[in-house]
Amino acid sequence: MGKKGHWLFIFIILLTALIMTPSSSKLFAKKVLRIGVINFITHPALDACQKGFMDQMAQEGYIDGKTVQYDISNAEGDMSVVASIAKKFVSQKKDLIFSITTPCTQAVAAATKGTGIPVIFGAMTDPVAAKVAESWERPGGNVTGCSDWMDVGAQVKVVKEIVPGVKVLGTIYNAGEVNSRVQIAELKKAAPGLGIKKIVEVNAASSADVLAAAKSLMGRVDAVWFPTDNIVTSALEALVKVCEDNKVPLFGSDVNQVKRGVIASCGIDFYELGKEAGKMAKQVLDGRNPAEMPIKKGKMGDLWVNPSAAKRMGITIPQAVMAKATKVINK
């Protein structure tokens, strides 16, 4: 063996030894991404959005505990906790943050400003009004995602189809949520054209306020509709009970609410919304700039009805509405 061959042989032996040592093997291991997931409060729609996101990420090759490590945090409606979680994710230098709801996205957008950490949101109604994006077509910063924007006019039309005599419509929402204020503004625009003469609004600043707010509407309204409000949805059972006891029809803004006792709702599938957010996250992790990624909207189309809930509130769902329902819940 010549001198050149001798040194090549030694180099190969040393390289093999280096690769085989436990400490050095980490150098050749694929990076495990760290993704922070922040949710505002526990309720089925938001949980479905989170599950859809994680399921889609798994389909894209990001396997929990193998190629990605999730840090999942839920503030349970406490804005001070939301801010703390957002700051924690930034200090830990997450590779990406998935934020669910408007309050969470606003907090994360503020915390990540100037850090370069990309943020994908789900279940946020109006990112422009919430001031986390410059426009729907070009967000312009580090935040983009999938909106749960609903056609409020279509939802109120369902109310009128089931209870044609509604003239005064009550609504409950947390005035502190931008997403809810946007939907109430849309409600006021749509109502006159559908023959609704008056909207009666009551505020519920916390889950504990929902029961009293619901009771305050009784005797003043013909029916109740509420937006995709995180506070109200988290305490929906209290609202349902009051409407049942007083035989006042209750309508929602999310199809999953029908499972919990609302008479009917048309809306989007939050699980599918989460999956779309997962697809966007994959694009960002592949190098696409979130500033240039148009914000997507969930697709309206599903109409869920609950004849049993209608009966408990003193009405019957017309056959014409039953015929076009995409899902019938009897519970």
Results as ranks from 00 to 15, higher is better:
P294Y: 13
V210N: 08
L169G: 03
W225F: 11
A75K: 11
F89L: 01
A281Y: 13
M124E: 14
M218T: 11
K311A: 15
K30V: 04
W225N: 02
V305L: 09
K30W: 06
K327R: 08
V242H: 00
K113M: 13
F226P: 04
K160F: 04
E76T: 10
M57Q: 08
L211W: 06
D47Q: 14
V202I: 00
R288P: 10
A214L: 10
K282C: 03
G287N: 15
I19R: 05
K198R: 04
Q59S: 15
E186R: 08
V321C: 01
L285Y: 11
V166I: 05
S180F: 05
F251L: 00
S206G: 10
P103L: 14
G267M: 07
L14K: 05
A45H: 05
I172K: 05
M300C: 00
D78S: 05
L14Y: 03
T125M: 02
I100W: 07
V182N: 10
N246E: 09
V132G: 12
I72T: 14
A190I: 00
K324Q: 09
H43L: 08
N306Y: 02
M124W: 01
I10N: 10
V163K: 11
R312K: 15
S253I: 09
K160H: 06
D286Y: 04
L285S: 08
L27G: 06
A58G: 09
Q283W: 03
S265N: 05
K26L: 09
G287E: 14
K31S: 08
L33W: 15
K87M: 10
G314L: 13
W225K: 03
L187T: 09
V156A: 03
K93T: 07
D269N: 15
T326S: 14
T326L: 04
A29F: 01
K94V: 05
V202C: 00
H43E: 13
D302E: 13
I10C: 11
T233K: 14
S84Y: 01
E134D: 15
S23E: 12
A208P: 02
S147L: 02
T125C: 01
C49P: 07
S80T: 09
A191N: 01
G122E: 12
N330K: 15
I196W: 11
H43M: 05
G195H: 01
P290F: 08
K198E: 11
V255K: 07
N39A: 15
A109Y: 06
V81L: 14
V132A: 08
A238F: 07
S207P: 08
K131D: 11
I317V: 08
F270I: 00
V200R: 03
V248T: 12
S253A: 15
K282E: 12
G61Q: 12
I63S: 00
V143W: 06
I100S: 10
I100C: 03
G122V: 03
I41K: 13
